[in-house]
Simulated scan of single mutants.
Amino acid sequence: MGAEREASVESGRRSRGLLGSLVEIGIIAVTAILLAVVIKTFLAQAFYIPSESMQPGLEVNDRVLVEKPSYWTGTPERGDVVVFADPGDWLATNQVPPAPTGFRAVLAKVGLYPTGDHLVKRVIGVAGDTVECCDSGRIVVNGTPLDESSFIAPTDTCDGPMAQDNGSYVKGGCRGWKAVVPEGRLFVMGDNRANSADSSFHLCSPKRQKSDDPACGNAFVPVSDVVGRVTVVFWPTDRFGLERRPETFESLD
């Protein structure tokens, strides 16, 4: 009888021990998920590069980490590579990747699985800036030509050839254009200027800009749509590297 009682007590201890372990595992899992959500919301988030528009610095399917604290009290600066939500039909249907499913979808929700439903470009102009193409083939910001040779893809004629037939003019072999960045907006461009549907691509003609056509705002990215600044390529490992603001932007007022 005593042996049976001891066996029953031991079984109860094991049950309570197992239950306690399960509760502990559950608490750890919930804490980890909450911590991941906090990190995604306030600190950092993973994305992958869906197109060739940021070559050579960022290649298709590179995984990058975007940090957010830089813009807690400030705004994106010229030269920053930023990830932002589509400001209005910039992403073609075939550029939007299928949504992750299963466990990957859960990881994406907490920022641990890279997503590709945003865009990544370099900030060229901020509110109040005048951005123009071109001076001897170079993009001009507030009258200062940018030396972008160290980070953009090589071009045959100029550093801003993607502007469409939207009233632009030919100047030195380039399509000329000019824009003043509105308050609360950014003028962004891809580093692969021959293959980037960016602000210059969506820019209205000078005449339409002066008419205050609402559609012309589509060329500029709202600061509120910016998720954060690209700081590091973390995958593939052989391309691991930090993303820094080019020195040429330091010369701008």
Rank of each mutant, 00 (worst) to 15 (best):
E250G: 04
R193V: 09
G160C: 15
N218W: 04
E77G: 05
N218D: 14
E148P: 00
G74V: 05
A32W: 10
V83F: 11
M1S: 14
Q45N: 09
R208E: 15
D165M: 03
G20F: 02
R245M: 05
P100R: 06
Y71L: 01
C204Y: 11
V170W: 15
K171R: 09
P214L: 02
G184T: 11
N94Y: 12
I33Q: 13
Y169C: 06
F187W: 09
I152N: 00
H118C: 02
T101W: 03
A197V: 05
P214V: 05
P222Q: 09
C133S: 14
P154W: 15
Y113P: 11
P154F: 13
I139V: 12
V110N: 13
S11I: 04
P97M: 10
F201Y: 15
K109W: 15
G143R: 09
G137P: 00
P98F: 12
S53D: 11
V232R: 03
T41L: 12
L107K: 06
D198N: 03
E10H: 01
L58F: 13
A194F: 07
V106G: 07
T155L: 00
G111T: 11
D117I: 09
C158N: 07
D62Q: 04
T237W: 12
G160K: 03
R122D: 10
G241H: 03
P97Y: 08
S200F: 07
H202K: 07
R138M: 13
V226W: 07
K68R: 15
D225W: 07
H202P: 05
N61I: 08
F201R: 03
A179G: 07
L242Y: 11
I124R: 00
E6W: 00
